[in-house]
Structure formats: structure tokens, C-alpha cells
Design a protein around this nucleic acid. Structure first.
Lengths: 116, 116
DNA sequence: TTCGATAGTTCCGAATTTATGAACAATGGA
DNA sequence: TCCATTGTTCATAAATTCGGAACTATCGAA
């Protein structure tokens, strides 16, 4: 099983972010991560917006979010802990993710550093 | 040949816009349309960012931009005239397209109604 | 240790989407 | 009527996505 890796922030691209968030399931996952105060494991998302997502599919979704640079995943024991790379991304592309979440009608958590 | 149609503004979705603009060629096309003062025909885009795009592919790209609600295409004689649906989109999803273009490092034309 | 349970990943075949050359359609001008 | 120009549609190959089944990693209990 290959080790998890994350792109460095300068390798994050606009097209990668847009592609990752153009899927409603991934957008919902990202939103919930970004909205939440603390990291969450993948299994929290087996049910997303009234749909049951098979775990292999879920794993792919997390991979795409990770490779787009939107989230960071760390193994903690048997689980993965996922967190949004909120501040980094906002520094690289100011306002981008914020406006996407607003368009999706999602409120970030007040503690998120880029929440206005 | 089926007639061209455009989604009404309330049928435009965030995922559609993100998907359409997550392709760098389409983003470049849309940007140039949005940046330009006046409408442009498709053949202006056979060369985009140093790549030659086959015209069947180009036609598909325009179709996707059109169906996402980002542009409007009208036949004028033998050509199509394409314009950005700039103001409408910005009213529906304030700031969204603007922040995407900024992230891509593109300046809109000063006459574009949503340019700040 | 060894076993089992839990959480995710990987593999692979089916389904969907995308790319592009070739044929076609629509329009205007000679 | 014929031809040139612009763009669409069709057909097929290539790439991507979905999801079940098998696999891996880790922890805790016996």
C-alpha cells in the first residue's frame, strides 16, 4: 500500500480544484470537512446528501480531493484523519474556495481562518 | 441540425460551471470571450495557448460552455457569435466567475459589468 | 503471539465521458 | 447553381469513473 502524499502548495492548480469541487459529492465532503472544527475520518461520509456511497468510491473521492491539494489526510491508528487545507489554499488563490462554497450555499465554520 | 438552445439562468448550476471551467482550454476560451469587448466566432480559437484544437473538439468545448450557461451563441450568417453571460451569472452566483478568473490570473475587460 | 474487527486501499471489469477525423449541413457570394 | 467557409454530427478509440471483491494495515482482546 503506497504511502499517502500531498502536493506542495505551489503545485496546486486552479483546474485541479475546480475539477475536484465540480462533483457534488466531493463538494459536500469538502464542505463538511471545511465547515467542521476538527478532522474527520472517511466513514463519516458513507451517507452524503441522502445517497449511500460505496467505500471504494469514497476512497477515490478522498484521493481526488487530496491530490487537488484541498485536504490533508493522516493515518491515526486504523482511521484516516482528514482536514481542509483552508488557509494555505486561500493564500494561494484568495477567495476562490470561499466563493465556490458560497455558490453552493454552504457556510464555513466561524473558526475557519478564511471565513470573513 | 438541431437548433441551439441555452439554459435559463435558474437552471445554471455551480457544478456545471466548475466542470466547464476546470478544463484549461475552455477556461482560456471563456476568458477571452469575457475579456473581449465584443462577440467572437469559434474559429478565433483554433489556436489556444500554443495548442491547435481540432474544430470538432472546439465545437464540443463551445457546447459545454453553452450548456453550463456561461456563454450565449447566435448564428450570424455563416458564423457563430459567442458572448459571455457575464452579468446574469454574476447575479446568480456573485463573485464566483470573477474569483475563478482571478485564480487563473486573467483580467476581465473594464467594460464587463462584473469587473470591480 | 494469534485472532478478529474495523477502516481504507487496490484491482479489475463495466459504464460513462472525452477526443478527433470524416462526413454532413447551413449560409452567403460568385 | 456551384463553391468556399463555418460549424455540427457521427463513429470509434482513448481516457475516466463507478463499484464489488479481495486485500492491507492497525488495534485490542484472548
Amino acid at each position: 500500500m503506497r504511502p499517502i502524499s500531498h502536493p506542495s502548495i505551489e503545485d496546486v492548480t486552479v483546474e485541479g480544484i475546480l475539477h475536484a469541487l465540480s462533483d457534488p459529492v466531493r463538494a459536500a465532503i469538502y464542505a463538511q470537512l471545511d465547515v467542521a472544527e476538527c478532522s474527520q475520518n472517511c466513514s463519516n461520509f458513507l451517507e452524503v446528501s441522502d445517497r449511500t456511497i460505496p467505500k471504494s468510491t469514497l476512497s477515490q473521492h478522498f484521493k481526488i480531493l487530496r491530490e487537488a491539494g484541498l485536504i490533508r489526510s493522516e493515518r491515526k491508528g486504523v482511521e484516516m484523519h482528514n482536514t481542509g487545507r483552508c488557509a494555505e489554499i486561500d493564500k494561494r488563490f484568495p477567495g476562490l474556495v470561499q466563493s465556490i462554497l458560497s455558490a453552493y450555499n454552504i457556510q464555513r465554520h466561524p473558526t475557519c481562518p478564511t471565513t470573513k
